[in-house]
């Protein structure tokens, strides 16, 4: 997520090259202005208005919506989003690091092994969630099988709880941790580990004191790629939490549909967006310190 400018600052020699460039940028700039910034501005305006009698928006201007977002009732939703996303990120790292290490150190078929991790990403996200629902439901495969085998008499409550939401998020975003981790681990000079061994380090302490610190940029990138979509997740808590584990995304969606309190929903979505940006900024600064 760094700035996207390229290193090349090549100029066409003595031509009126600026014109073509401006023309090329224009359509994208228009799309971004009309379909990204204008909607965002409307949300900013709405967040400062009051709710109208029929679910519309009306004057006067008020900061009331923002105060409500941090009410204990809604504040806890925000807090829950943060800790669930944090837990999912931590689990992704714990599960993804050994896998990335295995792929980076594999003698053969590295590309194949990496592609196999990325492949589920190309199938539908909705279907991947549905696959877990099929396994975990009260009438799902696991509960049915256990009942047929007379291990349990009542179905276990596997779905529609916070644990299921975290499982769904980890399953959905694990590939995003493996990819950046692999990219840094692959570049790691194996001689460093030989040196550590020669100096008497056990494999475990070599891993902990050489490999992990050197792959910090990959770890931070992996954290960003998982935490950001998780904190704003809507679909996973909605389907796997069954409406019981309400995260910030569900709160926003509900305000814009069922509750029809657009000003409050607008304030909540801006707070969510600022949260994401703040976390990005913190993690980016961390990784820059290293460079």
């Amino acid at each position: 997520m760094c700035s996207g400018e390229s290193k090349t600052n090549y100029q066409f020699p003595g031509t009126k090259v600026g014109r073509l460039r401006a023309v090329f940028v224009a359509p994208s700039a228009t799309v971004m202005a009309v379909l990204f910034f204008a909607p965002l501005l409307i949300i900013v305006a709405y967040s400062l208005l009051s709710r109208g009698p029929y679910g519309g928006v009306m004057h006067p201007w008020t900061p009331e919506n923002y105060r409500r977002v941090f009410d204990p009732l809604y504040g806890q939703v925000l807090w829950r989003s943060i800790w669930i996303a944090g837990a999912a990120t931590a689990l992704c790292l714990i599960l993804g690091f050994p896998l990335a290490l295995y792929i980076a150190r594999a003698k053969r078929h590295r590309t194949l092994l990496l592609n196999l991790v990325m492949l589920p990403f190309w199938t539908s996200f909705l279907i991947r969630i549905y696959a877990w629902m099929f396994l975990l439901r009260d009438t799902g495969l696991i509960n049915t099988a256990l009942q047929e085998l007379h291990v349990i008499s009542q179905p276990l409550p596997l779905l529609f709880n916070t644990g299921a939401v975290i499982l769904g998020l980890v399953y959905g975003y694990l590939p995003f941790t493996v990819l950046p981790l692999y990219a840094t681990l692959e570049k790691l000079d194996p001689e460093l580990l030989d040196a550590a061994e020669d100096l008497g380090a056990s494999p475990w302490s070599a891993l902990w004191r050489v490999t992990v610190p050197l792959s910090r940029s990959g770890i931070i990138a992996g954290c960003l790629l998982v935490f950001i979509p998780c904190v704003g997740a809507y679909l996973t808590p909605d389907l796997m939490g069954g409406g019981k584990t309400v995260m910030a995304g569900n709160l926003v969606q509900n305000q814009f549909t069922t509750a029809r309190d657009w000003p409050f929903g607008a304030a909540a979505s801006l707070v969510l967006m600022l949260l994401v940006l703040a976390i990005m900024q913190i993690l980016r600064r961390r990784s820059e310190e290293l460079l």
Binding site: M1, S3, G4, E5, V25, S28, A29, M32, L35, F36, F37, A38, P39, L40, I42, I43, Y46, I228, P229, V231, G232, A233, Y234, A248, G249, V252, Q253, F256, W262, G265, A266, S269, L270, L272, M273, V276, L277, M280
Partner: peptide, 27 residues
């Protein structure tokens, strides 16, 4: 470089989907 366009593209990438959705709906 067109920093404004680059930054807005990155911003759109990290904006939670639900926020993009409701802002487009409102717009």
């Amino acid at each position: 470089r067109f920093p404004l366009l680059t930054n807005s593209l990155y911003l759109s990438l990290v904006t939670p989907e639900i926020v993009t959705g409701v802002s487009l709906l409102a717009f």
